[in-house]
Design a protein around this nucleic acid. Structure first.
Lengths: 335, 335
DNA sequence: ATGAAAGCGCTAACAC
DNA sequence: GTGTTAGCGCTTTCAT
């Protein structure tokens, strides 16, 4: 292994000088020294030992993202946003996966990043257990949750779930629909509750109280959509459905087709997320689009502020705007 | 920050003893010492500084996966395989992303993991530039390519692309098809060439020489499928299409539908990969399924052997079996 | 503008 | 079984 000592010896300077040159500390050197050091480093094939640097600096330019599941198809967009913005500031990104549910696995993933001096931690759609949240806080490392909101003090950047539920439902209401189902509502403490509240609010504005079977729970999966539609049945009085994710929407769509229903003529469907999945089914899915890319970007900016000791944003909770993308799965109600 | 010294002081032993207890080095201690040390560590909220440990050990139990693109939908399956198998042996996994194309970005991603003593590097569908391959080799860190084959000495674990091309085409041939297109053939040095060779071989066995327009190039995307089918046209004499990926297959499928063609009655389609996308379209896609999960598992095992100084597998090139999963997008040719 | 020296937190001989 | 000691490679005062 080539170290700065080797370079120092070769060039005839002290290791500290090499360190300064390679670390671009001000430009207090003769151009000649810089040149010689750089050349020697290249020729010897020098590679910095970050462990050593991190040990003394107790800091690094690495951002860690902890992701709840490999399967979510929007995580990629958030990561792209993080990656792009991180590159902007010279931060590196490492990602670790953890299934949201299991506290032990969560802990292992957290430890992987806490045990080294990362510059900040971004948690993607993670519902951290209390123990693990404590662990995270004690680490003193700046952090922020992404794409998941909470009703306590935790910092997060996400969409406003109540608004999502409200606007999706309102969109169908404005098209004349009154019997509207919610398919695949999740069981997380907040997301599901808030989306449901928004859904009920939009319905209440036109004096509709949803029947119990209108709301079908699920886990964002394609199967959840299939199952929800099976519950509704081929002769349902529902004319519109809000689906908890694009995959749920596709499940509802396919099951409706299997029942011989036409979409959107017999049934209107609006999805939530707005991933590329919306465009590969027929009809293409109208959806409430979340700006995942922007969450990633905002997450990096948050970490950066924290790194710069701006404590004012420590527990800031921030919403990223949503929008409705009209495609072909909703039509006016004929009733 | 709490260090082993703090624990040592508190318990009244030497730091080295604490290190040994916490590192589970044999069980050469009084249960009492172990108990006291553990308790103190917990009470003080001790967190190991991995940078320090890695600096002295020049080694860690971290596997790094370098992934070519955030968008590939099979990377998730490989990662699940890696994760699962890694956990089996107590290895941790960190992932870094890099777009396959840009050597500069590739280099940055590589450096992120090379600059610390990771135990091994797995490269997922990465076509590394020569410079970066040299960099990787010089790092002395064990590595293996996954889901991408090469015609040089590089170690890899992937499907046999010629076999994929052959079996996909043969499957259609056996159903009576003779005019068979290949949609979305990629431009990578190997993958595309080998799949094309397999395709031509299966066709040659029934004395068919493909017309030039039968083979449409692409980049595995949905759009590539759309475009390929547009080139074929609604009145094509092709009765079957092999698609380079499931997304390409879906593109072909949708464009065929737009042309008013029925699948599989008017056109049979077989996809490559076998991701969950196959089951969310109608008809469901028959596909050549790759065992991505197994590639991940095998990758970890490879790294483990290398870690155990088993040099015999250093440049081993390994194929993972493929299989045809029959769903609903292929029917016998009526000609 | 550069060198000398100290030390980050941990592990691994080597003693006893 | 446990303590002592010597670094791992790097950064950073503090000199000069």
């Amino acid at each position: 292994m080539i170290t700065i000592k080797d370079i120092a010896k070769r060039v005839g300077v002290a290791p500290s000088t090499v360190s300064r040159v390679l670390g671009n500390k001000a430009d207090f050197y003769t151009a000649e020294t810089v040149e010689k050091v750089r050349t020697a480093a290249r020729e010897l094939g020098y590679k910095k030992n970050q462990s050593a640097a991190e040990l003394v600096k107790q800091h690094s330019n690495v951002i860690a993202a902890v992701v709840s599941s490999v399967k979510t198809n929007f995580a990629g967009e958030i990561i792209e946003g993080i990656q792009k913005e991180a590159a902007e500031y010279g931060y590196k990104l490492i990602i670790v996966y953890s299934h949201s549910a299991d506290p032990v696995e969560q802990r292992s993933a957290l430890m992987t990043v806490i045990e080294r001096p990362v510059m900040g931690i971004l948690l993607l759609s993670m519902a951290l257990s209390d123990d693990n949240l404590t662990l995270l806080k004690e680490s003193q490392i700046p952090f922020c949750f992404l794409s998941m909101g909470f009703d306590d003090e935790r910092p997060f950047i996400s969409s406003d779930d109540e608004e999502i539920g409200y606007r999706a439902t309102k969109y169908l209401v404005d098209k004349g629909h009154r019997h509207i189902g919610f398919a695949g509502l999740d069981q997380y403490p907040n997301t599901g509750r808030l989306r449901l509240a928004g859904y009920k609010k939009a319905l209440a504005e036109v004096s509709v109280t949803p029947e119990e079977y209108w709301v079908q729970s699920g886990d964002y999966s394609y199967e959840s959509g299939l199952k929800a539609m099976q519950q509704y049945g081929g002769k349902t009085d529902l004319t519109g459905v809000v689906a908890a994710s694009d995959m749920v929407a596709i499940g509802v769509l396919n099951q409706a087709h299997l029942f011989g229903m036409r979409v959107p003529d017999d049934l209107s469907i609006i999805g939530i997320d707005g991933t590329e999945m919306c465009e590969i089914v027929q009809p293409q899915l109208t959806s409430v689009s979340q700006d995942f890319y922007k969450m990633g970007v905002a997450g990096v900016q948050r970490l950066r502020q924290l790194d710069l000791k701006d404590q004012s944003v420590k527990n800031k909770q921030e919403f990223v705007p949503i929008k409705i993308t009209e495609r072909g799965s909703v039509s006016p109600s004929l009733n």
